[in-house]
Every structure is written in C-alpha cells, then in structure tokens.
Design a binder for these strands. Structure first.
Length: 430
DNA sequence: TCTGGGGTCCTAGGACCC
DNA sequence: TCTGGGGTCCTAGGACCC
C-alpha cells in the first residue's frame, strides 16, 4: 500500500504556524514578485478565490481588510517541509518525497488493520511538532492514494486519513471523483474526456483499454491502470535533477543591456551554486528572455540560446561566462523584458567528468573550481557571509553580477520573517 | 509519371505536476 | 499600473546512417 501525505494549504499553513492570528481567517500566499495567488486557506477558497488568480484582482479585498496576503517565503516553507519529511522518514520503512508538501510512504511490512491508526498518529504528531495540518490517503496505487487523500481533506469525518482498501470503496470513490481531479489528467485532456462523455473517474475506467490508448496514449493508459488498482507509476524517484532552472519576473520591465546581463549573471551563478550543492555538473547552459506577454501594445520577443560547454562544469565563472555568451546572442535593443532565466541541462555527477580532452585547459578549470569552492565557503560561513552581506548586500560574487541582493527588483510587499532560519526574525516572534 | 527501406538518436515542444 | 517558478516525461519529426 501507498500512503500519500499531503500538507493542507501548505504555504498558508506555514505562515499560520508563526502568525496564529491568521488562524480561521481568509489568507492567501502570493507567487514570486507578488504576481499570483498560489496558496489559499479554506476560508479564502470559500470566498471564491481561484488558484493562480492575479493578485491585482483581489488587492482591493486585502486593502479593505477582508483578506490577508503574504508574499512567498521559500526559506520558511523549505525548512518546515524538511521537518515534516523527517518525521515521516522516521515513522515508516521508506518514503518518496514528491514535492515540497507531499510524500508517498511505502507501507511495506505494516499490517493493513493498523495502517489507519498509524496514519492518524502521524497527522497528530506533525500538527503538534511542526504546526502543519496534513491529510493522508492510502491505497494500492499512487493515483488511488491521491484520490483517497482528496476525501481525507474534504470530509472531516475521516479525521485526516482515508483508506481505499476494498473493491467497493474503490468503485464508490471513483464514482464521486470528477475526472479533472485525477492525478495525471490535465486541462487539455479534461476537454477531450468531456467530449467523449466522461465526467468522473468511474466513467473513465469503464472504457476499454484500446480506446484509452488510442486517445490518451501511454500516460493515459497508465492512469487508467492505476485507477483500476494496477500500479504503473515508477517506484523510485530520481534523486538528482536532470535540469536546473533559475528565472524571475521583474517588478519593472528592463531594457538596458547591462542591467539585464547582470540579472542573467545572477541566475547563472545561482544555477552553478545549485549544481555544486548536488555535486553535479552541467554540459549545457540555456538563456531565455521574455517580454511582457500580457501587454498587447508592446512588441513581443521570446528568444533563447543554448551554449554547449566543451567539458561539463559547475564553477560559477564558466557557467556565468556561457550565460553571458547566450545573452549576447539573443539580446535585442528596444524591447522591454519582463522575465528572464537560465537553465542548466545535460547534468551528470561531478566526479564522473572526463577532463582528458585535447586542447582543454585543465589548469584553468582547477583554478576556477577552487575559486568557486572558496566563494561557497565564505558565503556559508556565518560571520564572514554576514560581513559581506551587510557590506554589499549579497555575499561574494563575480563582478558581472548585480551589485545588490539577488531579490532586488522583485516585488515582495507582504513577506513575513524567516522565523526558522534567521535568528533576528525568530527574536521578533518571541 | 516514376524517384527504397529500415533503423537509431536527438531535440523541440507539449502536457502534466506542485 | 498589476499576471510565478521549477520540474518531469512523452511524442513527433528531423537528421543521419547503412
């Protein structure tokens, strides 16, 4: 059996954990740049605020005191997520962390008649120790566990845990589940399903397999099997990422080449840092620029350029240099850029790099790697990094990067404290 | 008019997820 | 005025090969 543990309204719950005055109130958490609503409390859902609503459409509710907004605070959410995951990991033989707020527990070796009881204990423990409410769905496949978790979340009678452990329950659950709520059925396929007369998960599983394959191919057939109780979704989730992306929207559109180049350098440096942290290297660096797609009155331009490195790297200098090259290839004067980013691809283990390449300057590579290592060391040392941060606003970095903090030029008007990771913020709470 | 057949590999783009 | 960010997987189709 799989148990899916899903944190309820996760970002909102994290904010509430340190601001109990938000309990019982309609709260939303906004995306980067305060752009959209990305997490809603039950109260704000009840007000009819949809996921991904642009913030400007509900700003008046915040200003009139009917809604509470917070800017996203990933340092806080990441830290609370790690605490939840560590409680889960200590409680069952194996867990697969699926996202910042979800994990699958593999319930091997746990008696089925004790499963619900064990899960209820977990719900209580996470609530008590971390302050985060969670729901748990249990079933034979991951897709059915997702279905079960929806019921656990929706109906208080389940006390946070719903288990689908019989044919009868499975059928009942599927007939009550709209097809759009099924894991793996997205917007496009919902339209196709509707056209084919399918509105619930039960309607879908009744269709013959050849028909499913013909219309929804491999992915659809997997979902179909999973809903019938036959596991098809891969067991192991890869532990290392295959691509890493750092991108941001800007509060104000940028047109200046130097300013944009400095942002690109920042994004590239972030990517390089993430690679080093995972002990991986990338063979490709992609730069992309976006104009403002919502401004019909402005010329649009969405270029991208990919640079292949001669030998995969993870030092800041090389990744930034490649990104600068890409930037120079695609940048055009006269456009107003709203968003930009850097993607590193073709990722492999750092210790598997093959340096024996004719004409490649290995000495230089070693010097650059050493420099990045020293920069990481300085930036992670509390006292040194503190001194740099206060002196310059963002630690040690390349001269091509922006002079200020990474987040400069990105809107975040409602940010709460970094309660669990910043001592000063913790003091404020106390 | 007619102009092979069969493979593999790579990439871009689409769909989906949270 | 104001509209997020970061991933994965699959597929079609092009390039290339013999």
């Amino acid at each position: 059996m799989y148990a899916l543990v899903d944190c309820n309204n996760f970002f909102v719950s994290c904010e509430r954990a340190f601001q109990p005055q938000l309990e019982g109130k309609p709260v939303v958490v906004l995306s980067n740049n305060d752009g959209c609503v990305v997490s809603r409390s039950n109260e704000s859902k009840a007000m009819g605020i949809a996921m991904c609503t642009p913030f400007y459409k509900v700003r008046h509710l915040v200003e009139s005191g009917k809604l509470y907004a917070r800017s996203s605070n990933y340092a806080l959410y990441g830290d609370l997520s790690a605490r939840v995951m560590s409680i889960l990991a200590d409680s069952v033989p194996r867990i697969e962390v699926y996202s910042i707020d979800e994990a699958f527990l593999v319930m091997d070796g746990i008696a089925e008649d004790r499963t619900v009881e064990i899960c209820r204990e977990l719900v209580a423990r996470i609530r008590k120790w971390v302050g985060i409410p969670v729901s748990i769905g249990v079933a034979k496949t991951k897709t059915l566990a997702k279905v079960a978790s929806h019921f656990a979340k929706k109906y208080p009678g389940y006390h946070g845990v719903c288990m689908i452990d019989s044919e009868e329950k499975r059928r009942k659950a599927l007939s009550l589940t709209p097809i759009r709520e099924v894991w793996g059925i997205g917007r496009k396929n919902v339209v196709k399903m509707k056209d084919a007369g399918i509105s619930t998960a039960a309607d879908f599983v009744e269709r013959p397999q050849p028909w499913v394959y013909e219309n929804f191919m491999l992915q659809g057939t997997r979902t179909w099997n999973e809903l019938r109780g036959i596991p098809c979704v891969a067991e192991e989730l890869p532990d290392k990422r295959k691509s890493i992306c750092t991108s941001r929207s800007f509060a104000d559109m940028l047109s200046d080449r130097q300013e944009l180049a400095a942002k690109i350098a920042d994004f590239a440096a972030q990517c390089a840092g993430k690679l080093r942290k995972e002990k991986t290297v990338a063979g490709k660096v992609t730069v992309f620029l976006w104009t403002n797609r919502f401004r019909d009155d402005l010329e649009q331009y969405y270029p991208s350029a990919t640079i292949c490195l001669p030998v995969a790297a993870n030092n800041t200098q090389e990744i930034v240099a490649a990104a600068m090259h890409g930037m120079n290839m695609v940048y055009r004067d006269g456009y107003l850029y709203k968003k930009a980013g850097v993607i590193v691809d073709d990722i492999s283990d750092a210790d598997s790099v093959q340096p024996l390449m004719f004409g490649f300057d290995m000495e230089q590579r070693l010097r650059q790697d050493a420099l990045s290592a020293v920069m990481d060391q300085i930036n992670s040392d509390a006292s040194l990094a503190g001194a740099c941060r206060y002196a310059h606003g963002g630690g040690v970095r390349l001269a091509s990067q922006s002079p200020g903090r990474f987040a400069d030029g990105i809107r975040s008007d409602f940010r709460s404290g970094h309660y669990t990771t910043d001592f000063q913020d913790l003091i404020k709470v106390r």
